[in-house]
Structure formats: structure tokens, C-alpha cells
């Protein structure tokens, strides 16, 4: 059985029908990319998975448990971490305290320290700046902090919303390298990206969304060479 199964999900913002019955699956160990234009419903999908939005219809099954109605603050404990769009780090808290917030639901002090050293190893810049307020970091550093914070919960599935948005090309490459490394270390990744080319180049499989529906799916490599995808999302 798939790690995550989304079945016929419908989500409304007031009268606007934002998700019109989407279904997809994420297998353990995969990197899945969700690509599509602005307003296609990618962020809505992720926010519904982690309980920030509620669905009218459909279900979300994670590791065999129905999490459709589970409130957002209980999701992280179940093994899903969400790196939100726009990073959303706690700007008034220090880098260190932000990372500690990532481990909010964990009680094992020694193991939290261990996770912290793993995160610092992956993001040496965060260790250098651990006592700085998160609000003083650059955009790329904040993205690293948001990812490090999510990893502090030791998720089995990490969902990332536009991790490369607004970053300089050097940071974009670095962020994608880190996503690959996170995946290699055994965490399943569900990635939403407007940078479709980059996303498809690291993903195993991908889904293409258009105005609240999934219009295409397949092996990432194949989609990368698909004519329709190339002209619509890769700007070629």
C-alpha cells in the first residue's frame, strides 16, 4: 500500500471550488513533484493534507490511517512535516529556537540534540547563525531554516511548498541538492514547485495540476520530455 493516498479531494474557499476531486499516491521513499501554474491548487493540496484547510469531500490516508479530519497540530506527530510556502520562520525567535520549535512534539531530549546536530551538519550556516534572530537571515538561509525546522520532527514524509521561490540561482541549486540528500537519507518527499524543470529533474514521479484538477501524471523523466509539459511549464 502507498504511504500516502489522496482520494477524490474536494476543497472550497467559500464558493470557489479550489480542488475538484484530486487523487494521487506517494510511495515510501519516493520524491513526488506536484507542478502547475499559479492558482492550480498545489498549495491548497498541501494545506489540506496537513490540516490547515479542511476538505468537503474525499479522503487522505497516511500509513493506513485516515487523517482527513485530523487537526493541523496533530499531523506533525503522525510523521508528516510541512515546509510552508514563503518559509514562515518565526522571525522574532533565534535560529536555535526555531529549530527547537520543529521538535515541539518530541520529548526525547537526547535524541532532539542528536537531530539538531544532524540538521547543523546538513546546514552549517544555521549553526553559524544559531543565536541570530531568524528575521535577520537572508531568503535562502530562511529557506534552509524552514527545512531544518521541519526535519527536527524526524518526519517520514516531508511536504515542501515552493522551496525555491524567490531565491537566487545559487541558492536554488543548493536547495535542490539538499532535497535530494534528504530523500537519500530515507525521508519521502512531496514537492510543490513552479520551477518545473528543477523539480522534474530530481523527482521520481510527478503530477501536473491545472485549475484544481490533476491533468497529467507519470515518471518525472518522461514528463520532462513530454511536448505538452515542455511548452506549458518548461517554457520551451
Amino acid at each position: 500500500m502507498a504511504m500516502l493516498t489522496v482520494n477524490n479531494l474536494h476543497v472550497y474557499y467559500g464558493v470557489i471550488h479550489a480542488l475538484k476531486g484530486i487523487s494521487f499516491e506517494v510511495e515510501k521513499g519516493e520524491v513526488i513533484a506536484l507542478i502547475g501554474a499559479n492558482g492550480a491548487g498545489k498549495t491548497t493540496t498541501l494545506q489540506t493534507l496537513t490540516g490547515l484547510l479542511s476538505s468537503k469531500q474525499g479522503s487522505v490516508i497516511f500509513e493506513g490511517k485516515d487523517i482527513t479530519k485530523v487537526p493541523a497540530h496533530k499531523i506533525v506527530e503522525m510523521g508528516i512535516a510541512h515546509v510552508p510556502e514563503g518559509r514562515r520562520v518565526f522571525s522574532q525567535l533565534s535560529v536555535y529556537d526555531n529549530l527547537k520549535m520543529g521538535a515541539f512534539t518530541r520529548k526525547d531530549k537526547a535524541e532532539i540534540e542528536e537531530s539538531l546536530s544532524i540538521v547543523y551538519k546538513r546546514f552549517p550556516r544555521l549553526e553559524e547563525r544559531k543565536n541570530q534572530r531568524a528575521g535577520t537571515l537572508s531568503g535562502g538561509e530562511q529557506q534552509m531554516l524552514a527545512m531544518g525546522r521541519a526535519l527536527m520532527s524526524r518526519p517520514r514524509l516531508i511536504v515542501m511548498d515552493e522551496p525555491s521561490m524567490g531565491l537566487s540561482p545559487i541558492y536554488v541549486n543548493e536547495i535542490f541538492d539538499i532535497i535530494e540528500a534528504v530523500s537519500k537519507s530515507g525521508t519521502t518527499v512531496l514537492l510543490v514547485e513552479q520551477n518545473a524543470k528543477k523539480a522534474l529533474s530530481i523527482a521520481d514521479r510527478a503530477y501536473v495540476m491545472e485549475t484544481g484538477k490533476i491533468t497529467m501524471e507519470g515518471i518525472a523523466e518522461d514528463l520532462l520530455h513530454n511536448e505538452a509539459v515542455r511548452s506549458a511549464y518548461l517554457g520551451e
Partner: peptide
């Protein structure tokens, strides 16, 4: 304290705080 940090997190960004597991 941990609960104090949760308060600061909620004060700044309720959604992000929930994603950390904080009961708003």
C-alpha cells in the same frame, strides 16, 4: 520555556505554529 516559545510562535504565525504541533 517550551510553552513560552509556543506562545511567541502563535503570536507571530498561527498556521506555522500549528505545523510545529502547537495547539493554538
Amino acid at each position: 520555556t517550551k510553552q513560552g516559545h509556543a506562545m511567541q510562535a502563535v503570536s507571530e504565525d498561527k498556521d506555522a505554529a500549528q505545523l510545529m504541533g502547537v495547539n493554538v
